[in-house]
Write a protein that binds this DNA or RNA. Structure first.
Lengths: 330, 330
DNA sequence: TCTCAAACTGTAATCGTTTACAGTGACGTC
DNA sequence: GACGTCACTGTAAACGATTACAGTTTGAGA
């Protein structure tokens, strides 16, 4: 392993000078040249562990979420990655397919200093998570619903508004018997979307009851498919909002197999507006929650926080938008 | 920051004893108890930079590929993550949406010791990449086609066999005018799949020419859609193999919009067998390249290599399989 | 030529661990 | 009671960088 000492010897200077050249502080032209030549000749690269130990920074930022199989999180990752690309920070991905237990385990190891900051988008509504986050020594940016009692930088999208847009659109296209195919209720999005749906329905004077909600046990294609398979009597509804686009895809598949015409018999709306939405038959109307943009903003907040630890806490609100496609045609 | 010194003071022992307790070597019962209590009381976590510096290991493994938007790579990431979950290694994701330039940049910084091993699945066929990899000081496992001149642990799937399965199946279901909608030709999969297609066609005595190949400029839905939109006269073919499932989805969309019946007028086969394949209408026959399994094997190879740096180089071959669905019904 | 400030450079301490080695004490044996 | 062994513990030296601080060189001005 070629260390800073080897470079110093080769260039005939002290290690301090080498370090100074690397970090771009004072150095005579000739010294700099000799050091740079030595570095090139030896193929030297500074050891990041030693550097991290000394400067007390790892120059790594950790991104943590629970479902990489969900394209919305992939998009978020892309956003974070882009914002970090031109900085000194590397992106670490942690616990991308995890259960609550795994997240807790991961959070517990975050104190080891291998990351300078944590961007987290927890879907599970578990109390331990909020507690662990609040005890972290490094800056945290939370994407999504802020748990009670926690106060960190935050970027969120008001799903109530999003669901409102959806219900509104269905009502405007003359649907009256509207239901929700919700994702798991022990998750933040699941809980929030259900509440938002209820209040949107009541607000618009539409009939709402417990039976308006079909419960899927995962935010996935098969989750959606199986939920409506079990439920069966979809003719109760003439419009459905789904927990996300994948659930909607599952519902769509079921409808196709069972002769339910979309949008003829039933209008369908998804959430997230992933690529899938535009290639389904019919193409899927979707509430876009702008995941990539939220990732980008989260990374931006993190960079600003790292640059100025004392700045006031920021909460950024991203507006959902409705993308209308064939699945809700009148 | 609470360090090992603080723990030692609290427990009334030396830092060496604390370290020994943590790393599970000799210690008297009472000493161990006092140390563990002190650790708990102070909430101590060992600093990973200091540890990495001393033991010359970062306990991080880097996974590098170029297109996280492709679910096949997400599956691979899941495989790697699972295999690493119960080990001491953390998974870092690098350059997940990258150009050749970015990969080169990343590879150049791999010498800094922030990862103990690199699992890489490069799609671009660029000579610099092979060269940089061969100069790396850490173990590398390559997933995919091995560039010439490189010799590292490798897990690959013989796409020739996969394409062969596809062509075979199309021939068996009475298709004669078979084409390929290929991905970009400057990528490894693109190049390999084209060659494999050509030889499979010739071997089976089917007509092949330059015009049998439609070139898409990305392994994506829009890549497939635009390629066939530009090409137009799809009636030349009665069977198409697509560079991956997303390209196939794009082709399918075009066919739907232009009244080409699948599988009536045209049979369609994708590659990768991602979730999407089973929810398209019609469902898509696909050549499964077992990405998740390859990721798992790659991680396994890496762990074995790290445990025994001297062991002979392994090359593991994963067999592709054909999943037949509606899009190729006779 | 001499002086002094400015510009640069080197020495050495430090970051938080791990670990070789030496030291301590308990205990069984003669 | 002396001694050897064994089990454990502490001291101190690394690992490879950064950075005060002190020391040295340089060059301008007198």
């Amino acid at each position: 392993m070629v260390s800073i000492k080897a470079v110093a010897d080769r260039a005939g200077v002290s290690i301090a000078s080498v370090s100074r050249v690397i970090n771009g502080t004072v150095a005579r032209k000739e010294t700099e040249l000799r050091v740079r030549t030595a570095i090139k000749e030896l193929g030297y690269q500074p050891n990041s562990a030693a550097r991290a130990l000394k400067i007390r920074q790892s120059e790594q930022i950790c991104l943590s979420f629970d479902d990489l199989a969900n394209p919305a999180y992939v998009a978020m990752t892309r956003g974070v990655g882009q914002a970090l690309a031109e900085t000194k920070y590397r992106l670490i991905l942690a616990s991308a397919f995890s259960s609550v237990e795994e997240i807790v385990k991961h959070l517990e190891t975050m104190g080891r200093g291998f990351a300078d900051g944590l961007i987290i988008s927890p879907i599970y509504a578990d109390k331990r998570i909020a507690k662990l986050i609040s005890h972290l020594q490094i800056p945290v940016v939370l994407v999504g619903t802020m748990p009670v009692g926690l106060n960190v930088d935050n970027v969120y999208v008001d799903s109530a508004i999003g669901i409102g847009l959806g219900v509104d659109h269905l009502k405007a296209t003359n649907r009256k018997r509207i239901g929700l195919v919700n994702g798991p209720i022990d998750t933040n999005p699941g809980r929030r979307r259900r509440l938002a749906f209820e209040s949107a329905m009541k607000e618009m004077g539409l009939k709402y009851s417990e039976e308006s909600v079909i419960q899927a046990d995962a935010f996935s294609i098969s989750g959606g498919y199986e939920a409506v398979s079990k439920f069966r009597n979809l003719d109760k509804f003439d419009g459905l909002i789904c927990g996300n686009d994948q659930i909607a895809a599952g519902v769509l598949k079921y409808c196709y197999e069972n002769g339910i015409a979309i949008p003829g018999d039933l209008a369908l709306i998804g959430i997230d507006n992933i690529d899938l939405a535009s290639i389904l038959h019919p193409t899927l109307t979707s509430i876009d929650l702008h995941s990539e943009k939220r990732g980008e903003i989260a990374a931006q907040l993190m960079l600003e926080r790292l640059a100025d630890p004392a700045r006031p806490i920021q909460k950024i609100n991203v507006k959902p938008t409705l993308v209308i496609r064939e699945s809700t045609a009148a």
